[in-house]
């Protein structure tokens, strides 16, 4: 068996488009998931029972389901709700955002809990409202404490975006698979894709490690 580099070189522009879509999906799902997740974490720590229950239910619900099933759910639901077919991109984005929110909310909750009780009490003693207390005291510290975990989650999310394969969105994984099957070069394409994913994710986890080291100091 000969390793055929040419087939990879020829397919590079196509694969690059796929990689860009992977980054795009990661970015949108991260921003959306983080926003919604923070909201959920605030609900969970708010002390108001209905909100606490809702947040708990939401998080436990989504964390019990496989991402693929959630992707299928929204691939099926979104066109039904809108009343006309929309591309799989939108349903995938919604699925990823709602799914990731559950994980981000757990991260944010841990971050909020890591801010010492004394700080919150100090804020309250100064007459800050709950919202001000969260916005100026708790959240900035929580986000800083959680930065390494947030980046780690972004790496996981980046890997998870490969699952859009099941709804035929052309991310990097799917693009590699399309070329692999079309050219009959499965070995070359899949190993190449693995190397690319590895380099990106490994660089990411090195970055996490340097963040952690800087924080310990």
């Amino acid at each position: 068996m000969r390793f055929d580099y040419q087939v990879i070189i020829d397919a590079l522009p196509f694969l690059l488009d796929g990689l860009l879509l992977s980054f795009y999906l990661t970015a949108i799902a991260m921003v959306g998931g983080l926003a919604l997740g923070t909201l959920l974490a605030l609900m969970r720590t708010s002390g108001k029972l209905p909100l606490v229950w809702f947040a708990k239910l939401y998080v436990n619900f989504f964390r019990s389901l496989p991402l693929i099933l959630v992707i299928f759910w929204f691939y099926f639901l979104v066109p039904l709700a809108i009343g006309r077919p929309v591309g799989s991109l939108y349903s995938a984005l919604i699925a990823f955002t709602l799914f990731e929110a559950a994980y981000y909310s757990e991260i944010m909750r841990a971050g909020l809990n890591s801010v010492s009780r004394g700080q919150i009490n100090a804020g309250l003693a100064l007459g800050l409202t709950w919202r001000q207390n969260m916005q100026y005291v708790a959240l900035p510290q929580a986000i800083r404490a959680m930065l390494p975990v947030l980046v780690t989650q972004a790496i996981i999310l980046f890997q998870d975006t490969s699952l859009v394969y099941v709804v035929a969105l052309r991310d990097f994984m799917t693009a590699s698979s399309i070329v692999a099957v079309r050219e009959g070069r499965l070995i070359e394409l899949y190993l190449f894709a693995a190397v690319v994913y590895f380099i990106i994710c490994f660089a990411g986890s090195m970055f996490v490690r340097s963040l952690q080291r800087r924080m310990v100091r």
């Binding site: 998870d160 490969s162 994984m173 899949y190 190993l191 693995a194 994913y197």
Partner: peptide
């Protein structure tokens, strides 16, 4: 640990299924 954590699971699955038997 680094190798298995930094490649998407789906891709690992394809490698086990399509690539490994060839190698």
């Amino acid at each position: 640990v680094e190798l298995f954590r930094n490649v998407p699971l789906l891709l690992q699955l394809f490698i086990w299924y399509f690539v490994v038997p060839e190698l």
